[in-house]
Lab assay of single mutants.
Amino acid sequence: MATGGRRGAAAAPLLVAVAALLLGAAGHLYPGEVCPGMDIRNNLTRLHELENCSVIEGHLQILLMFKTRPEDFRDLSFPKLIMITDYLLLFRVYGLESLKDLFPNLTVIRGSRLFFNYALVIFEMVHLKELGLYNLMNITRGSVRIEKNNELCYLATIDWSRILDSVEDNYIVLNKDDNEECGDICPGTAKGKTNCPATVINGQFVERCWTHSHCQKVCPTICKSHGCTAEGLCCHSECLGNCSQPDDPTKCVACRNFYLDGRCVETCPPPYYHFQDWRCVNFSFCQDLHHKCKNSRRQGCHQYVIHNNKCIPECPSGYTMNSSNLLCTPCLGPCPKVCHLLEGEKTIDSVTSAQELRGCTVINGSLIINIRGGNNLAAELEANLGLIEEISGYLKIRRSYALVSLSFFRKLRLIRGETLEIGNYSFYALDNQNLRQLWDWSKHNLTITQGKLFFHYNPKLCLSEIHKMEEVSGTKGRQERNDIALKTNGDQASCENELLKFSYIRTSFDKI
Rank of each mutant, 00 (worst) to 15 (best):
L128Q: 05
W160A: 02
N202A: 08
F91N: 14
M137Q: 13
P330I: 10
G183N: 05
R256D: 05
D169L: 07
F285K: 01
P187G: 14
G300Y: 05
K129M: 10
L260I: 13
R256H: 05
C315Y: 02
L120N: 01
N282W: 02
R110I: 10
F115V: 13
K217G: 09
S98L: 01
L260Q: 01
L64M: 13
S112F: 04
P104H: 00
C209Q: 02
Y259D: 14
P31A: 03
S143K: 13
N282E: 07
D169H: 14
T211R: 12
S317F: 14
L29G: 14
W210C: 10
P70D: 14
P269T: 14
N242G: 07
C301I: 00
I40R: 00
C331M: 03
A190C: 06
F91L: 04
V144Y: 02
C215P: 13
M83T: 05
Q276M: 04
C311T: 01
P270T: 10
T194V: 09
H307D: 15
Q276W: 03
V121S: 09
N52T: 13
N242L: 11
C264Q: 01
K193N: 08
G188M: 15
E124W: 02
T329K: 03
N282L: 06
W278Q: 04
L233F: 08
G188F: 08
W210M: 13
Q245I: 09
S213Y: 07
P70N: 03
F275G: 01
L233S: 12
L88I: 15
D288E: 11
G132D: 03
C215Q: 02
Q299N: 13
L47M: 07
M321P: 14
G192L: 13
L133Y: 02
L152T: 03
W210V: 05
L240Y: 13
F116R: 06
T250P: 01
P31R: 02
Q204H: 11
D169E: 14
K251S: 05
L128Y: 01
M83N: 00
L102T: 03
V305M: 09
V253H: 08
N202M: 08
H291E: 08
E71W: 03
S296Q: 15
M38G: 04
S324I: 01
D177Y: 05
R46M: 15
S225N: 15
P269S: 08
G203R: 09
T229N: 14
Q303C: 15
P271G: 15
E147Q: 13
P70R: 11
T140M: 08
C53F: 00
P316H: 03
N150A: 04
C228I: 03
C196F: 11
N135E: 05
C293M: 01
Y171C: 02
A156T: 06
S143C: 05
E97P: 05
V108W: 05
P249A: 12
D86V: 00
C215K: 08
Y118L: 03
G132E: 01
N179S: 07
C255R: 00
V34E: 05
Y272S: 03
Y171H: 10
I158Q: 07
G37D: 12
Y319R: 04
E181S: 08
D169I: 08
C235T: 00
K191D: 02
H226G: 12
S237T: 06
N105S: 11
P36Y: 11
F205M: 07
P104M: 01
P334D: 04
R297H: 11
L327G: 02
V55T: 04
P36R: 13
D247R: 11
E207R: 09
E49K: 05
C239N: 00
N179R: 14
V144C: 04
S112G: 06
S161V: 09
F115K: 06
G318H: 06
H127A: 12
N149E: 00
C293Y: 02
G142A: 01
N309M: 09
G300D: 12
D184I: 05
E238W: 05
C228K: 03
K292S: 06
N150P: 13
L60K: 01
N195M: 10
K310P: 02
G188E: 04
P249D: 01
G227C: 07
L106Q: 00
T320L: 06
F283D: 08
E130A: 07
Q276G: 08
C286V: 07
L96N: 01
F123L: 13
P197H: 09
A156R: 11
Y87C: 00
F73T: 04
Y171P: 08
N43Q: 11
N295W: 05
G300I: 13
L240E: 02
S112P: 00
Q245P: 02
G300K: 15
G37L: 06
I312Q: 04
R113W: 05
T250C: 05
C186V: 03
E314K: 11
F78W: 03
R263V: 07
E33Y: 00
V167C: 14
F103Q: 00
Y154T: 09
L128C: 02
C223M: 02
T157Y: 09
C243H: 00
P271S: 10
L102W: 11
R162C: 14
L240W: 00
G192Q: 15
G227V: 11
C209M: 02
V108Y: 03
P31Y: 13
G241Q: 05
C53G: 00
K224C: 05
L90S: 01
